[in-house]
């Protein structure tokens, strides 16, 4: 008899205690209701990764949850505390439709004709900046200054899609776009000339010195080496060695060096070595 009474009391207490029953899964930014059992007044807590809400509710009635309370994706805790104690349930909020792309394109400058040199990484987010974990197709479009564009559709994995592509032989800007649905993020990368090819110098005698200049500097694909690139001239004569680092200006590096008697003049740019010329005495 005593045991039966205890069971009845426990059942009555549980009824007043109130359980919360949220849906198993909810989409971010969409309102819904959490059903409850029991009766009486209770404090309701909604605890999410980025938000905590508290309000007074009646147990036994549905608790409406506003769309603004479920913007962040992740695990949520719904807790109801009534006179008999607290009860809780967990549920997940999933990201909404893809809406934004964070797009990383590297490097911002790349040498022409380099394999797998351009790296593109796209993170797919919904409108609340939740990573979209379901696979979606990210369209990467590579549009060089000259030549046909390249299309690369890539499926995302846990919110990220990436690809690599080679640079083309012509220098200049290359536009790369990452697209997911309506979201489109363009970036521009500069393709720059490679090392100098056939680095050659010539010397002209002036009244007191020798004027040394390079032929117009180009890489092996015919792209002009950019102005400002350093060309190192070395001259060895009877008085010793003379060196000068000269920046290319208007496609040519040029300098004037005093020469004492016979001299040998050579040229280099970075790790590229050019021709060597010999000058006789008489200056």
């Amino acid at each position: 008899m005593l045991r039966l009474t205890a069971c009845l009391l426990l059942l009555m207490r549980l009824a007043a205690f109130g359980e919360v029953h949220p849906p198993a899964q909810v989409t971010a930014g969409k309102g819904f209701s959490i059903s409850t059992t029991g009766s009486g007044d209770a404090s309701f807590y909604l605890i999410s990764p980025g938000h905590v809400a508290k309000r007074e509710v009646k147990l036994g009635q549905d608790i409406p949850v506003d769309a603004s309370d479920v913007k962040k994706a992740g695990r949520y805790l719904a807790i109801a505390c009534g006179s008999g104690g607290c009860n809780s349930a967990a549920f997940y909020v999933m990201a909404a439709e893809p809406d934004k792309v964070s797009f990383f394109l590297h490097p911002s400058r790349v040498r022409v004709k380099s394999n797998d040199a351009i790296n593109a990484t796209a993170f797919v987010f919904d409108q609340f900046y939740n990573l979209v974990l379901t696979p979606v197709t990210v369209d990467f479009k590579v549009i060089p200054k000259t030549g046909p564009p390249i299309d690369r559709p890539i499926k995302s994995n846990l919110g990220v899609a990436w690809m690599r592509v080679a640079s083309t032989p012509k220098q200049g800007p290359v536009k790369v776009i990452a697209e997911v649905g309506k979201a489109s993020e363009p970036r521009v990368i500069q393709q720059v000339a490679s090392d100098a090819c056939n680095l050659r110098i010539k010397a002209t005698r002036t009244a007191k010195a020798v004027l040394i200049e390079t032929d117009p500097l180009r890489d092996c694909s015919g792209n002009a080496i950019p102005d400002g690139t350093i060309v190192s001239f070395t001259e060895i004569d009877g008085k010793g060695k003379t060196t000068v680092d000269v920046p290319i200006k208007k496609g040519i590096a040029r300098t004037q060096l005093p020469v004492n008697g016979r001299a040998k003049i050579s040229v280099a740019s970075g790790v590229v070595i050019g021709n060597e010329i010999s000058l006789g005495g008489g200056l």
Partner: peptide, 29 residues
């Protein structure tokens, strides 16, 4: 990119104290 400075007449030498030095001259072009 400016100034351009030439390093002329470079050679290994000794200073008045007999120490080894690399000598030369700088010409601001």
């Amino acid at each position: 990119a400016d100034p351009v400075i030439a390093v002329t007449d470079q050679k290994m030498d000794k200073d008045p104290l007999g120490k080894n030095v690399l000598r030369g001259a700088l010409v601001n072009q």
